[in-house]
């Protein structure tokens, strides 16, 4: 099945014939996909359709799962993500990730954001505090936490924690941010803030988001991809996918006939 992504602009990430396996179970089948630069690309589909696996494959977070292996190719700026010469640690500094459940570290708010810089060996206190402030501002959290930067990150609300995790990801200046259902554990108001934030960020970052929530995909994304049973069924401009999909399965899903 040859899926040509009808996408304009520079393609930041591209996969060709990408398949993924956990042991003998095939989680992804021959996915040909592209994430355009400085756009928001949403991935939707029912549980277990492989969308999260796909997202996690893009910064090699699946490497930690025993029995995981892949076939095909995934490219970041035309370079093979799974190439023998690639150090996944350095890959992940370029392709950041925000998870479903907010996972701040057991450190102060400040240290959470600074952590990514510290592990890269940034010693300069003024540079670190500049970047921390910049990142917190970018994550629209600065005004809420600027007076308690030394306080524990666990004292924040769920939504604030998630924005802190976004700020933490931004601090290392990645080029791509992968969001794995970032709002599924949040209340509607926090969700709205995260969605606003994504719009602000897309000028500077390439964003890929996995979501359970079709309305969210329709609201925030420029492109939408629909996954089903490990295959990419359809991908296209969000307006088209939600109004006039080519594939009948996509139509069934977005009109709520299954999933």
């Amino acid at each position: 099945m040859e899926q040509i992504a009808p996408m304009s602009g520079n393609l930041k990430i591209e996969t060709k014939g990408f398949s993924a396996f956990y042991g003998k179970t095939q989680a992804l089948r021959n996915v040909n996909f592209a994430v355009p630069e400085k756009k928001i690309t949403a991935m939707i589909g029912p549980s277990g359709c492989g969308k999260s696996t796909f997202l996690r494959s893009l910064n090699r977070m699946n490497d930690f799962i025993p029995g995981f292996r892949m076939e095909g190719s995934a490219l970041l700026d035309g370079q093979e993500i799974y190439g023998a010469a690639v150090n996944p640690v350095l890959l992940r500094q370029r392709v950041g990730m925000v998870f479903q459940k907010p996972n701040p570290f057991q450190m102060s708010i400040y240290e959470n954001v600074a952590y990514g810089l510290r592990i890269q060996g940034v010693k300069s206190a003024s540079l670190v505090s500049d970047i921390v402030e910049k990142s917190l501002r970018a994550a629209a959290l600065w005004d809420e936490v600027k007076d308690r930067l030394k306080g524990s990150a666990f004292a924040l609300s769920g939504g604030q924690q998630q924005r802190l995790c976004i700020a933490r990801a931004l601090a290392v200046e990645p080029e791509v941010i992968l969001l794995d259902e970032p709002a599924s554990a949040l209340d509607p108001i926090s969700t709205a803030r995260i969605e606003e934030l994504m719009q602000d960020l897309k000028d500077r970052y390439t964003i890929a988001i996995v979501t359970h929530n079709m309305q969210q995909a329709a609201r925030v994304s420029d492109y939408t991809a629909f996954f089903l049973d490990g295959t990419l069924v359809e991908v296209g401009e969000t307006t088209k996918i939600f109004t006039n999909p080519d594939d009948s399965r996509t139509e069934d899903y977005i009109t709520g006939r299954f999933g």
Binding site: G23, T25, I65, G67, R69, M70, E71, Y82
Partner: peptide, 14 residues
């Protein structure tokens, strides 16, 4: 998936 760890099956690419 982890219940069926196929130890001999090493990842092809990495």
């Amino acid at each position: 998936f982890r219940k069926s760890p196929d130890r001999t099956e090493t990842p092809r690419k990495h």
